[in-house]
C-alpha cells in the first residue's frame, strides 16, 4: 500500500512519461502483480492505485533491458547471485506480458 502511494506520488510529480519502475520481487506471480499494479491499476482494489491506470514503463531487475543499461560490475555484485537463484524466464514472461499489454510509454 505504502509503495503504491509512493509510486503514484513520484509519477505525478515527475510525469508519467519520465518514470520507470524497477521491480525486485523474487516470485513471478508477485512481480507480475506489481507490474500490473503500476500499469493497469491495482487488481486487488486494495490500494491507492485501485482503478488508476498509470501505464508506467516497468522492468524487473533481471530483464535484459535493465541489465544492459547498468554497469556490469555493479550488476554482478548486486544481482549476479540472485540471477542464479530466481526463475528468470517466468519473471520476464510475467512482467514483459504486463508491460506490453498495459504500458503507455
Amino acid at each position: 500500500m505504502e509503495n503504491q502511494k509512493r509510486v503514484k506520488e513520484l509519477a505525478e510529480k515527475y510525469g508519467l512519461e519520465n518514470t520507470i519502475v524497477v521491480l525486485g520481487g523474487a516470485e513471478a506471480e508477485a512481480a507480475g502483480l506489481a507490474a500490473e499494479t503500476v500499469t493497469a491499476g491495482d487488481p486487488t482494489y486494495a490500494g491507492p492505485l485501485a482503478g488508476v491506470s498509470l501505464g508506467l514503463r516497468v522492468y524487473h531487475a533481471v530483464e535484459p533491458e535493465f541489465k544492459e543499461s547498468v554497469d556490469p560490475e555493479v550488476y554482478d555484485e548486486q544481482i549476479g547471485m540472485m540471477e542464479m537463484v530466481l526463475d528468470v524466464d517466468s519473471i520476464i514472461e510475467e512482467v514483459k506480458g504486463m508491460r506490453e499489454q498495459y504500458s503507455k510509454y
Binding site: A26, A30, G80, M81, M82, M84, V85
Partner: peptide, 19 residues
C-alpha cells in the same frame, strides 16, 4: 505468493558457493 522460503534461502547460499 511468497514462495518456498527455506528453499529460496538455500538457493541463495548455494549460489554464493558457486560464486
Amino acid at each position: 505468493g511468497a514462495g518456498d522460503v527455506p528453499n529460496a534461502n538455500y538457493k541463495m547460499i548455494a549460489a554464493l558457493g558457486v560464486k
